[in-house]
Design a protein around this nucleic acid. Sequence first.
DNA 1: AAAAAATTTTAGATTTGTCTAAACATACAA
DNA 2: TTGTATGTTTAGACAAATCTAAAATTTTTT
Lengths: 218, 218
Amino acid sequence: MHSFTEENYLKTIYHLSQFTASPVQTNAIADGMKTRPASVTDMLKKLSDKQLIDYIKYQGVTLTEKGKTTAVGIVRKHRLWEVFLVEKLKFKWDEVHDIAEELEHINSALLVERLDEFLGFPKRDPHGDLIPDQNGFFEPVQNIHLHEMSCGNKGVIIGVSEYSSAFLKHLERLGLTIGIIIEIKEIADYDGSVELLVDGRKINVSREVTQHILINYK
Amino acid sequence: MHSFTEENYLKTIYHLSQFTASPVQTNAIADGMKTRPASVTDMLKKLSDKQLIDYIKYQGVTLTEKGKTTAVGIVRKHRLWEVFLVEKLKFKWDEVHDIAEELEHINSALLVERLDEFLGFPKRDPHGDLIPDQNGFFEPVQNIHLHEMSCGNKGVIIGVSEYSSAFLKHLERLGLTIGIIIEIKEIADYDGSVELLVDGRKINVSREVTQHILINYK
DNA sequence: AAAAAATTTTAGATTTGTCTAAACATACAA
DNA sequence: TTGTATGTTTAGACAAATCTAAAATTTTTT
């Protein structure tokens, strides 16, 4: 078995490699793990010894199959527990991330499958993220961030890419929750803030916010 | 916050002090924690520094109020999670102990209270152990072990004091589960094995088994 | 292509929890 | 009450995960 720390490194590397095809760099991992680059280097050696990552000095890392399987397993647990907390225990979507960070390390394959069944095999978690199935598969996503869209574009809010309570509460106050249909009315040259049409109302959101909203856009 | 290890020490000390009024000894803790006496001594110093135990060299330890509160909190979580696993996820009573050992360290007061509510404020866990309430209170138990009873005595199986899957499966095979009424027909001088009357049938159980069955006997 | 900047790694230290072996304290028995 | 057995603590080491400071490598700039 792997330590919590090892699991967290794998998860961080997994999430970082979602955004790029190239190897994940030490500094990026250090940021994600809120630790120092020197500590990351130490851990990369260990994960490499355990065949969980391919590591080339100074070049960065990629997950091996074994590493990816482990990482996806943790992501699956995290998202299932989030569904449990919201659906069964009446938590709000901004309250569950930190608790799920702990629960994701509970080690029992049977538990995960029973939980999945108990929850009715949910497809997405409360933040709109897809839940990998028992074999680690899930349809590749082709969402784009709101800030990548252009004037006149329409779409549906399908998820977020930031899970802090502060951010999620802010979205809720703005009425920008999952499933909401939005249309881009104007993008300010000055600060990148965006005017949205939501449910007939006009709403102004900062660039900061647009960078963390995922849109299902075709 | 306390580390998992610290929490496990506190829990072990708590359980050991259930059986005796006198201070808990280093070797007993080492047994319970499956570690060495020298390691226990190191940890006792740390717990003492944190005011979780009263520790006198060579004499043993007792929990402080703070230590007891912490320990009971962990026991509460353990037992609530066991109920969840059996009642909601359809685990068997012999499958839940190890998973609950992990879940008991999840850190969220709100989670515990929501879980309690979700489960309908259960009074006992699947092994018959009482679940402390939110304030750590629970009626003092006056169960006795089956091996402490005499010929002709009757009682109800109210719990167990051993949680291994092997033991619990054995009980189930014998039909000795919680709520079952038993009567002692005979106690063998030779090996301490006991003949029980259960539901009209006669059953013979080893002394080993009688030492881990708790009876509500008045 | 050399210099400067950014990134990454090494070296050496620290903390937590563990260990073995040896010393120390207490209990008990002759 | 002295000796032996049992139980406990100290001393010194080790592994995991982290850190700072310095050295090494790669990338970017001029």
